[in-house]
């Protein structure tokens, strides 16, 4: 564990490559069975280039990355995520690799903000999120 300074970036790190099996598992654990996340023909009928990942899968991976980043800093003991705002900017497709990273911002002693981006293998931002941490 290290001390948190706001020059410390949260390094971009791969969260995995999107597969149909992963999307089906996320549908099962989240209850979101929208067929555009599983069925190529439905996705195309909706004007999409193909099956797209659930936005909430990427959003959840970002929450996991946020918690993982918090654990790296001893000064964040006792903090928890009290608010998150996620914006879905572009679609994630089968075979895309999701990487997540960002930076810290201080608000005050008891409130800290973490801003994260999810990018695909072409460094296109697919989702942006900010997290308020408080204790």
């Amino acid at each position: 564990m290290t001390e948190l300074t706001f020059e410390n970036a949260v390094a971009f790190k791969s969260s995995g490559i999107i597969t149909l099996e992963w999307l089906k598992e996320f549908a099962r654990v989240s209850g979101d069975y929208n067929p555009i996340h599983q069925d190529e023909s439905v996705a195309r009928a909706m004007g999409l280039p193909g099956v797209i990942a659930h936005g909430m899968l990427t959003a959840s991976l970002m929450h996991s990355r946020a918690i993982e980043a918090m654990v790296d800093y001893r000064d964040l003991r006792g903090f928890r995520i009290t608010r998150s705002e996620v914006r879905f900017r572009s679609m994630t497709f089968l075979g895309d690799e999701i990487s997540i990273g960002g930076h810290w911002e201080a608000i005050c002693a008891n409130e800290i903000r973490l801003e994260l981006l999810a990018q695909n293998q072409n460094q296109v931002t697919t989702v942006s999120a900010n997290f308020m941490l408080a204790r």
Binding site: Y33, N34, P35, I36, V42, A43, A45, M46, H54, G55, M56, A59, R80, I81, T82, R83, S84, E85, V86, R87, F88
Partner: peptide, 16 residues
């Protein structure tokens, strides 16, 4: 469901 896409999501966690 297939007619909609997710644009934004906010959570406010007041209690664990």
């Amino acid at each position: 469901l297939p007619q909609v896409l997710h644009a934004e999501q906010t959570y406010e966690m007041l209690e664990i």
